[in-house]
Design a protein around this nucleic acid. Structure first.
Lengths: 215, 215
DNA sequence: CGAAACCTATCGATCGTCCGTTCGGCGGCC
DNA sequence: GGCCGCCGAACGGACGATCGATAGGTTTCG
């Protein structure tokens, strides 16, 4: 959405085509990945740009060649994360039918799968939000609000149509979201590898349906 | 209840009492309070001890006169926070009867009241945990585990006795705890002042009972 | 075809600032 | 006169950021 034409990958090192600039040291992507891991492990202020550069196997100057600075690195990471989450939710809802329970299940599935598959980014987005400078925070607040609205509209609709009987939709919404989001904090692929993600989705769908008191 | 300037023992400037050392500049308590607010607002690494000293209205040296350093300040804050939470839970459970639903309600009440009344400490304890050095972390991990066990034993017992019908007690436990803990992140006394805490307790008790599928 | 100009990805060195911590001293109440 | 609460100055190091240089590829052009 934002950070430029080369956000994904520098033109491939495809053999046949002419060799258009192949970052020798891994380039932008190596730095982004290193920043993601470092921010997740030690937090924004606990990570120095020297840590990031070292992890990427590049120099401090290479970092500044590819990115505007530490703050933009954080903002880009969070933006990409929220953006993907929103797209997943949107797609899940469009594929779902009209039944409130089915729509809630779709949103829970999208969220659980996202939290499991993007644990690292999830941690950053939730715990480093306050370290965004106002310019970035304002922009990203809108995206966050849009994702929240997906949940709110869905639950309000279910209540209005009598499918959900919970007395306080706002609290139900916060409880469901909090429960799903917390997965990123305790789920460890090594430890819970035996737990199939589809099982996890089923369990949290059942919990969510009970929270909204689906008849 | 808690963080008042005279919460501990430093005898107030009461006229009659007299002798025992009254810190002129607010002393230890002023620094602890300043550290709590700063850590909560900007995080451990985002806060400098100069920020803390300035906020307390004292010099950098005064901070070191009262505390061993930045890390000990954080550890003391978190320890006090967990310790009080555990004592509240323990008291609530001892006052509760034998009925699983009643015991769960007691634990939810203790947790919700705690998250609302100690929002600031709650934020620090949950988000600055990783910044504890190993020695402190190991000690505090035990306290955290004890609090989790309170929930786990209660829910397992309810399931064993047939009062709760949820298929996966561990997931129910994590969902309930996550929902209650999240309150500290969205509840604002100014905004939600009209919402009585007893109402909030009732709402979250209902949600918790639905999560564990109480018959 | 070859050279000169240009671009890209990277480097090492360096800037001024802020960090956590330490130390010696000083005024006022016992 | 000694201790208690507090201060200012200082230390070495790490921080985020900037700079000019360079190796090697690409384009331009005579």
């Amino acid at each position: 959405m934002s950070t430029g034409p080369l956000d994904d990958e520098p033109p491939g090192p495809a053999e046949a085509s002419g060799p258009p600039s192949v970052p020798r040291g891994g380039g932008r992507e190596a730095i982004t990945r290193a920043a993601r891991e470092s921010f997740a492990e030690r937090g924004y202020h606990g990570t120095s740009i020297r840590d990031i550069a070292r992890r990427a196997g590049l120099s401090l100057s290479a970092l500044y060649h590819w990115h505007a600075g530490k703050q933009e690195l954080l903002a880009a990471l969070i933006e990409e994360s929220i953006d993907e989450y929103f797209r997943r939710c949107d797609a899940a809802l469009r594929a779902a039918g009209d039944d409130p329970a089915g729509r809630l299940a779709a949103l829970v599935r999208a969220t659980v799968e996202y939290r499991v598959s993007r644990r690292v980014e999830s941690t950053i987005a939730t715990s480093e939000w306050r370290n965004l400078e106002p310019q970035h925070r304002e922009r990203l607040d809108g995206m966050r609000a849009a994702a929240t609205r997906l949940w709110a509209d869905l639950i309000d609709d279910g209540v209005a149509r009598g499918a959900f009987r919970c007395a306080h939709p706002g609290d139900a919404r916060r409880a469901v979201i909090a429960a799903c989001n917390a997965i990123a904090q305790w789920y460890e692929p090594h430890t819970h590898g035996g737990l199939d993600v589809t099982d996890l989705v089923d369990r949290y769908t059942a919990i969510a349906l009970r929270i909204v008191d689906c008849r």
